[in-house]
Each structure stands twice: as structure tokens, then as C-alpha cells.
């Protein structure tokens, strides 16, 4: 087989080989757990502060945005219309969406003020990252299940999805963004302005 003319199998094998070290030295179960522990500590440090909701949401956004893979979530949630956007429209949408997302989930997390949160399980989901399961316990109530789907495929370990009692952020936001976009007759600029304003 001439070496300068690699066939498909060689290319695939090479591709896999190039990919392997990245996965092997990438995220591990203990690292995934440690990451989520840090996120939980930082989130709850803010949630448990005695602040007004508006103040809390502002501080929460500072912590939430760097921990979440906002670009990937924004892209996946908007779906096909994302492909039609210019680079600057993409980044404007992503920024506005990050702001909207942080506000929405900041408010949800505020519901669990004072909760005891424990990590119960970590699973490797392959190309879909890691699933770190946790339980939030508010005194006198049954625990709530909160799953963190995290991945380092963007280069740094980040949150790519949150699943609260089975309800996935990605799917519910996709539904919501679709409805918001529909109400604006498919105009992504209007949608971006709206998301930035909430």
C-alpha cells in the first residue's frame, strides 16, 4: 500500500488515534465530580446570600456564564436558524441567551436556598460527556434530583445541560426558543434583543 496515498481505513484509524489521547487525558470521573462540587459550592454561596432577587441574579450570572458552555447550548437550542446567522449575530445571540439562561435558572436555584446538596453518582456518557447526579434536600421535603451533564469538548470542562427531576434544560429551552422565535416571525435579531432585555 503506497504510504503517500492513505486509504479511508488509514485515515479513520489516524483520526481515531489523534482523538484517543485527548479523551484518555481528558475528563475523568473524579475530575467531573470535583468540577460539579466546585460549581455547587460557587452557586450556593450566591444563592444562600441574603440578597434581593435582582442582586442575586446579577451575582449569579458572573458565576454561571463561565461555568456553562453557553455557545454550545445556544447553538443547539436555536437549531437550524443558527446556521443562517453572521458571526456577529451568532455572538450577539449567544450573549443574550446566556443572560436569559442565567436569569431563568438563577431563579430556579433560588427556590433551593439552604438546600443540602450531595453528589450521588457519576457516569461516563462517552461523547455526551459525564453525567453527575446530585440530590437537593430542603428540610422537611423529599429530595429533588438534579443531574449535571458536563463535557470538556470545547477545551475546558463546562456544563452542557442541567436535568431537574428529569426535565432537561436543553429540550425545554429549545421548545421555549422555538415559540419565542415563532412569535417574532423567525426574526433572530428581535429574539436576541428580547433575550438581552429579560
Amino acid at each position: 500500500m503506497p504510504l503517500n496515498k492513505p486509504n479511508r481505513r488509514v485515515v479513520i484509524a489516524g483520526g481515531v488515534a489523534a482523538f484517543l489521547p485527548l479523551r484518555a487525558f481528558g475528563l475523568t470521573e473524579p475530575a467531573a465530580t470535583a468540577f460539579v462540587e466546585r460549581v455547587i459550592d460557587d452557586f450556593f454561596a450566591i444563592i444562600n446570600l441574603n440578597q434581593s432577587e435582582a442582586q442575586m441574579l446579577r451575582s449569579f450570572e458572573q458565576v454561571f456564564t463561565p461555568y456553562a458552555d453557553v455557545d454550545i447550548i445556544a447553538r443547539s437550542v436555536l437549531g437550524p436558524p443558527y446556521r443562517q446567522l453572521t458571526t456577529s449575530q451568532k455572538s450577539a445571540f449567544s450573549n443574550a441567551f446566556g443572560h436569559y439562561l442565567s436569569n431563568k435558572y438563577g431563579r430556579q436555584f433560588r427556590e433551593y436556598r439552604g438546600a443540602d446538596i450531595t453528589i450521588t453518582r457519576v457516569q461516563n456518557a462517552g461523547s455526551k460527556g459525564f453525567l453527575v447526579s446530585s440530590q437537593m434536600r430542603v428540610s422537611g421535603q423529599s429530595p429533588w434530583s438534579l443531574d449535571w451533564q458536563i463535557s470538556d469538548r470545547s477545551g475546558r470542562t463546562k456544563i452542557i445541560n442541567l436535568i431537574i427531576e428529569g426535565i432537561s434544560l436543553l429540550t425545554s429551552e429549545r421548545e421555549e426558543i422555538r415559540a419565542l422565535l415563532e412569535a417574532r416571525r423567525g426574526n433572530v435579531t428581535e429574539l436576541t434583543n428580547y433575550l438581552a432585555s429579560v
Partner: peptide, 8 residues
């Protein structure tokens, strides 16, 4: 679980 990276 879904793979949000799958959409490009």
C-alpha cells in the same frame, strides 16, 4: 442524554 455538540 443528548449531544449538544452534534448540531453544528
Amino acid at each position: 442524554l443528548e449531544d449538544p455538540y452534534a448540531f453544528e
